[in-house]
Design a protein around this nucleic acid. Structure first.
Lengths: 330, 330
DNA sequence: TTGTATGCGTTATCAA
DNA sequence: TTGATAACGCATACAA
């Protein structure tokens, strides 16, 4: 608990100027590699820690990167985080994290907190505010939106249409003809998944059967029961996300139906639960780490040129096949 | 992109002094509720955001709370985060997050980053540094350790001995006699789980069979295969965590053995995968949110009194039974 | 490389 | 409540 060590102390102990110490800690130009090492060593010995607070206040342009993640319980956001960190760490930028909430009730507060931390740009994954609010916010602190396209705002998203096509056409190729889709509420976006499904069904001459469900597993289970008990029960389900697919699996297992044999199921997100033994859910992978990395690079570009026109980058999803998909029963 | 709005601007627009604006934004005493609201409204209109960077630099004592989470892919840490946030948000403290890595290779860097952000205390979940380093670090910036007891450092941990007893005695009550434990490397702590297992086995007159494995699923699978193929194959497995238990399940399913019928399995952590249909793993729940909340409160106490003696708080784990546990086959 | 001066936007302290 | 002023620890620009 000695008095706080400052740059001045390090400078004195190392026998150099304050300014040089400052440069050394930012590994800027104009400081010889040897002296740099020596300065850092002296700093370590004294227990000095570069004060990013003071540094940030003093430097005019904000250089740190804010990261907003909707929900830590969802593995997708963990992937996104990893991707961002990978893409950004070569630049030695500070990442400032803020976590939201599933319902979006923390969006505004968390984004404000990042703004209060004076980040230069915010990478947002799972922001639920309306487009208009995102745009308004972005005009003060630029946002890079992940997995959601916001007009006028840098966006990095996965091709949902392609994902919907991938899943559906695979089920069709397996011989399924009665394929139901459990879709999310249209107001939340991700419409491409549904569009891809309906397009593929139509072009195969099959009738679409789309049921809208919420994000809860229980809700999905209810919908699955209704479909299975109805006329012309489907032999395959395409779910808008893994959570929904788990609801379907729950129903199948409870009825003694083996997923992948009698009935096939494909989810979306390829979250960590998908790979669990026993569950082994086929799913569409968004490649969250890839999205995060792309967003990280976009953030660096935005920091470098605040006036550049907004960018839109679209990455391709991938179908990951496990045990819940199999040939249609005869 | 207007010029940055500062407190001075707000003060002028609201027709009050700078000092009053400062007080209003910290909702401190000495500012009438009405004027406070008015000041905040004016601030909003001007698009002012309280600059936490400048505030933090100017205020003498650090009041923000650092949170170190080892790995976002593990649901346990998400629970911990939620618990901390709940416990702390009434105090309106800033949470500063840092994320580590599974192998511990980011421990030092992440903790330093928090120190550089001048937090007043750090809540650490999943720190892997040796005790001595944690203690040394904690003497500069106090640490509250979660799920790991570090002598001389505030710690909030779950009672691993009780957890090991719970799991083992339950298997014994189910009639199992050949119960194997897949334990973690002793150097990582959590020794109580193993001790609880061995104690319960001994007091039931049964022979312990402990095999040490790493944290990888594949490693656990290998160990399970060796045990199942050996003499006197176990009818039940107690795994030191869920990941390890999944490795066992993988082997059982591959061999057509139904978990919970022929062979029982209990994991530890009750992570999100445990509840997936098809997996349905019985597990010991650490109650991460509860641990987080306790740590949050401990952090607030530490902030209030840096000189108080270190505290140790121990919470009780709970056995969550699902499909992978059942009576011993006859 | 070195000093040195100036400023970043607050908080904190005091006297009024 | 108000001003006014001194920190806070650093970045930055400049002259040497």
């Amino acid at each position: 608990m000695s008095a706080r060590v400052t740059m001045a102390d390090v400078a004195e102990a190392a026998g150099v100027s304050r300014a040089l110490v400052s440069l050394a800690y930012r590994d800027a130009f104009g400081v010889n590699g040897d002296t740099r090492r020596r300065i850092l060593d002296v700093g370590d010995e004294l227990g000095y820690v570069h004060n990013r607070i003071a540094a940030s206040l003093a430097s005019s342009g904000a250089t740190s990167i804010g990261v907003y993640l909707q929900d830590l319980h969802n593995d997708f956001f963990a992937d996104v985080h990893d991707g961002i960190r990978d893409a950004v760490e070569t630049e030695a930028r500070d990442l400032v994290l803020a976590v939201g909430a599933l319902g979006g009730e923390r969006d505004a507060g968390s984004l404000r907190a990042l703004q209060g931390a004076r980040v230069g740009v915010i990478i947002g994954a799972g922001i639920l505010m309306p487009d208009a609010e995102v745009q308004a916010f972005s005009s003060r602190t630029p946002i890079v939106s992940i997995a959601r396209e916001v007009p006028g705002v840098d966006s990095v998203s996965s091709d949902n249409l392609a994902g919907g096509r991938l899943a559906t056409s695979h089920l069709i190729e397996l011989g399924h003809r009665r394929i139901a889709m459990l879709a999310n509420p249209p107001s939340d976006g991700y419409l491409g998944r549904r569009a891809g499904y309906e397009e593929q069904m139509a072009s195969a001459g099959l009738a679409s059967r789309t049921v809208e469900v919420s994000y809860s597993r229980a809700d999905a289970a209810t919908a699955a029961i209704a479909l299975l008990d109805g006329d012309d029960a489907p032999s395959a389900f395409f779910a808008h996300n893994d959570q929904t697919a788990l609801g379907v699996l729950e129903v199948l297992l409870a009825r003694g139906i083996t997923p992948g044999r009698e009935v096939s199921v494909i989810g979306y997100d390829n979250s960590s639960v998908s790979g669990a033994p026993g569950t082994s859910l086929s799913s569409v992978d968004l490649h969250g780490a890839q999205l995060g990395a792309a967003a990280g690079r976009a953030a660096l570009r935005r920091l470098a040129d605040p006036a550049a026109p907004p960018e839109l980058e679209v990455t391709s999803p991938e179908l990951v096949l496990r045990m819940t998909t199999g040939p249609a029963p005869v």
